[in-house]
């Protein structure tokens, strides 16, 4: 839906969206802000998310002559809009359509971080998994097979230690390759059991008919099946000036 006259990023308070926009997501305490600070340096700006009391930090960095806008999302364990923070993170990734989303994970408890990663990957394939705190993992003798993980997930995986700066050059390069389209991730789709897939099959054509044949319709259909009303608010707020009544009918 990029390129439409309506600019969702503006509704997130981001005006200079001529440059590519990259989001930093992840569980709390995984080093998102440390990475954000290391990449943007003093070139950052903090305010609030429009209409919310949650702090928004965004900044810029340059890599290979390309300016990139980086947005530090609130730390969350989920993207189900259980809290303001989760709703902001989810809305930004889904409605804001960043050119890439970096999911920052803690190498010392990787398993718990992968749940959020899968939720992000369900929204967009443009995801980079940055496994941070590898210095801590080394200290605890935790070994991670990064290449195998990248292969299994179908997205790039970058090991890092934000405190020392290790891995951040590769992270910037990976972001660049994703923005330029050189790197096209193909995450494995998450297939649910027959009942859910059947229901999806029924409502997907309807949703595609309203929003255009869009790859992210599946995610939206899943939320509607769950009865998530916040997603309807999002559609109204970020995508449509005049929401069609039919979408309410699809809502179950």
């Amino acid at each position: 839906m990029k390129g439409q006259p309506l600019q969702p990023l503006l509704r997130f308070g981001i005006e200079d969206a001529d440059s590519p926009v990259v989001a930093l997501a992840g569980n709390p305490n995984t080093g998102k802000t440390t990475i954000f600070n290391a990449l943007t340096g003093l070139n950052q700006h903090t305010g609030n998310w429009p209409g919310k009391t949650v702090v928004q930090a965004r900044g810029k960095y340059c890599y290979g002559g390309q300016e990139v806008i980086l947005v530090d999302l609130p730390g969350t364990y989920s993207l189900l809009a259980n809290s303001v923070e989760e709703q902001i993170a989810r809305d930004f990734i889904y409605f804001g359509r960043p050119d890439a989303t970096i999911v920052v994970a803690d190498a010392t408890c990787l398993e718990r971080n992968l749940n959020l990663l899968l939720q992000v990957v369900e929204i967009t394939p443009l995801v980079i998994l940055c496994i941070n705190l590898i210095d801590e993992a080394r200290r605890k003798l935790i070994k991670i097979d990064f290449a195998r993980l990248a292969e299994r997930l179908g997205i790039p995986v970058v090991p890092a230690s934000a405190r020392t700066g290790e891995g951040l050059e590769l992270l910037k390069k990976t972001v660049q390759d994703m923005i330029s389209g050189k790197l096209k991730p193909s995450p494995k789709p998450i297939i649910y059991d027959g009942e859910v897939e059947g229901a999806l099959h029924q409502i997907l054509p309807e949703i595609k008919g309203i929003l255009g044949d869009d790859a992210t319709s599946r995610w939206l259909a899943l939320r509607l099946l769950e009865g998530d009303e916040t997603v309807l608010e999002g559609i109204q707020h970020y995508l449509l000036t005049d929401p069609p009544a039919r979408l309410e009918e699809v809502f179950v």
Binding site: Y77, S78, L80, N82, E111, R112, N115, E226
Partner: peptide, 8 residues
């Protein structure tokens, strides 16, 4: 339920 599952 979903929130508890998401917390691990």
């Amino acid at each position: 339920r979903r929130r508890l599952l998401d917390l691990g």
